[in-house]
Computed example of a mutant assay.
Amino acid sequence: MILISWNIDSLNAALTGTSARAEETRKVLEKIHTERPDIIAIQETKLRATGPTKKHQEVLAEEFPEYHYVWRSSEEPARKGYAGTMYLYKKELAPQVTYPQIGAPGTMDEEGRIITLEFPKCFVTQVYTPNSGNGLKRLSERQVWDQKYLEYLKQLDQQKPVLASGDYNCAHTPIDLKHPDNNHHSAGFTDEERAGFTNLLNAGFTDTFREINGNVEGVYSWWAQRVRTAKANNSGWRIDYWLTSNRIADKVKRSEMLDTGARADHCPILLEIAL
């Protein structure tokens, strides 16, 4: 089974945009398609509350004809056109789909951040973890989120093995970003966020990239768009993950990033597992 997860930074722009960046994003979607994944998880869709428009549906049907899709968007009282997630899965699959509320603070549960697919032998779930924000103004809420999300994953894991992916907005260790010393108090690399991710792993989950690739350095999944030289200089962060329940970690064959060329922001991450 091959699964790919990607923070796309606006599915609307990818499907209907005319800018150079939209073209770059579509090329990445084409690259994902060539991998023939069974499941594609997409974060930060930024779709309206009513979901894909008719035009979006037409493009998805044309570009991904062998897939069904399900989506979850930000809804009031949360911000419109914010966050959001989507799954595309092969039509021969027939998962039970849930859109969990985890008891998160503020409007986080209304921001379309989690979708879960249930299969006979496992759960596949994705998350778009809230960013702690400029000045860490959302850090305290983020800490509550991390605890609630951990409780949710543990609940799934008690039933059957879990494959969890997404943008976790956390570089776990110093080798997961290019400049750890300069970012100790930056969102995504605070002691609190890193401790939250450690708690997640300690609860019975494996960071599959590290499991397969060891302590390799200089491999990242995100490069800041606003810093023009970030991608060219590989000044990145690894904040996107494929996690598995510990008891199936030995079945992972590949856990890697897909190259996006000069396009900054997130790159897709691929998991191949023999279930």
Rank of each mutant, 00 (worst) to 15 (best):
M86Y: 06
Y87S: 07
P161G: 05
Q143L: 11
W6T: 02
A14L: 03
A94G: 15
R113F: 03
E63C: 06
I39S: 05
L243Y: 13
Y67N: 12
I42W: 04
A83M: 05
E75H: 04
A49H: 05
T229Y: 07
P95S: 08
E272Q: 15
L275V: 09
N213L: 09
A104F: 03
P130F: 04
E141Q: 15
T34H: 15
E211S: 14
E192T: 06
A164Y: 01
E75L: 07
V162R: 04
P77R: 03
N182P: 00
A230K: 10
V162L: 03
L136A: 10
L271T: 02
N183K: 14
S245Y: 02
M108I: 10
T50I: 07
T129C: 13
R254Q: 14
G112S: 08
T129L: 09
P77V: 05
R48C: 10
A78E: 04
I8A: 05
N183L: 12
D250P: 01
T206C: 06
K80L: 13
N233W: 12
K154C: 11
W242C: 01
A274L: 06
Q155A: 13
Q155Y: 10
Q43G: 13
Q143F: 05
E44K: 14
I212G: 00
L177Y: 09
K137I: 13
R238L: 03
Q155W: 10
E58S: 13
T244D: 05
W222R: 00
Q57M: 14
S245Q: 02
A230I: 09
K231F: 04
A274Q: 12
Y99V: 04
D265F: 08
Q155L: 12
I4C: 07
A14Q: 00
E111T: 02
T25F: 02
L11Q: 03
P130G: 06
E44R: 13
A164P: 06
D240Y: 11
A262R: 14
L258Q: 11
